[in-house]
């Protein structure tokens, strides 16, 4: 029964996450809040894992949630839930590909959709930022604005941002640097 609920949740994610890449992210946070399958922390870890292993994050997250909750069968079922809407929609679209691309309504929907999806992912970014750089607990205890910021994490954030802007390395490089800094400086 729980497996069926998980299938439906990932089916919904597959159906409404439009635009690829991190578009599944807001849906994954929504699932994390509603169910016990994985926590918000795990999503951040999964972004890193997805950037450093092959495969899209949506598929990876569905696999992870299914596997940890219900084993290999769960992994297969939740991944199927995620990809099924794509398969159905594309098979329909494949029959009138050119009309679909030039359709005014399709183009008009994207006019509203793109900024909204960008905002949704930005919200997900705020979550990641809160978890990784701010120490809300310490702030609640001391009420000192300085203690809100985890200084070493802030420094790492700025350095990584600069590296990223200057050399545009593969995401894997950024992740490996961050992991080493985390271990060496005991984050």
């Amino acid at each position: 029964m729980d497996m069926l609920v998980m299938f439906i949740e990932f089916f919904k994610t597959g159906l409404f996450a439009i635009g690829g890449g991190l578009a599944t992210l807001p849906f994954l946070y929504d699932i994390a809040d509603k169910y016990e399958w994985f926590s918000r922390d795990v999503i951040s870890d999964m972004i890193a894992i997805s950037e450093s292993t092959p495969g899209p994050i949506g598929v990876n997250m569905a696999t992870y949630a299914g596997f940890t909750s219900f084993g290999l069968g769960g992994a297969l079922l939740s991944t199927l839930g995620l990809v099924l809407p794509s398969i159905i929609v594309i098979i329909i679209v494949a029959n009138f590909l050119n009309k679909f691309k030039e359709n005014k309504i399709v183009q008009a929907s994207f006019y509203g959709l793109r900024p909204a999806v960008t905002a949704l992912i930005a919200i997900a970014g705020v979550e990641v930022f809160k978890e990784s750089i701010l120490s809300v607990e310490a702030f609640k205890q001391t009420h000192n604005i300085l203690s809100l910021f985890n200084l070493s994490a802030c420094t790492l954030f700025i350095v990584l941002l600069l590296i990223n802007m200057k050399w545009k390395p593969h995401p894997l490089v950024i992740i490996v640097i961050a992991a080493i800094v985390g271990v060496v400086f005991k984050f």
Binding site: L22, L25, S44, D45, I47, A48, E51, I121, A124, G125, V128, F129, E131, S132, I133, A153, L156, F157, L160, L161, N164, P171, I174, I175, I177, A178, A179, I180, V181, G182, V183, F185, K186, F187
Partner: peptide, 15 residues
């Protein structure tokens, strides 16, 4: 510790 570091990298990648 490694994953705490990695989360900072993830914040950069999402941004």
């Amino acid at each position: 510790n490694a994953f705490s570091g990695i989360r900072v990298a993830v914040a950069v990648l999402v941004l």
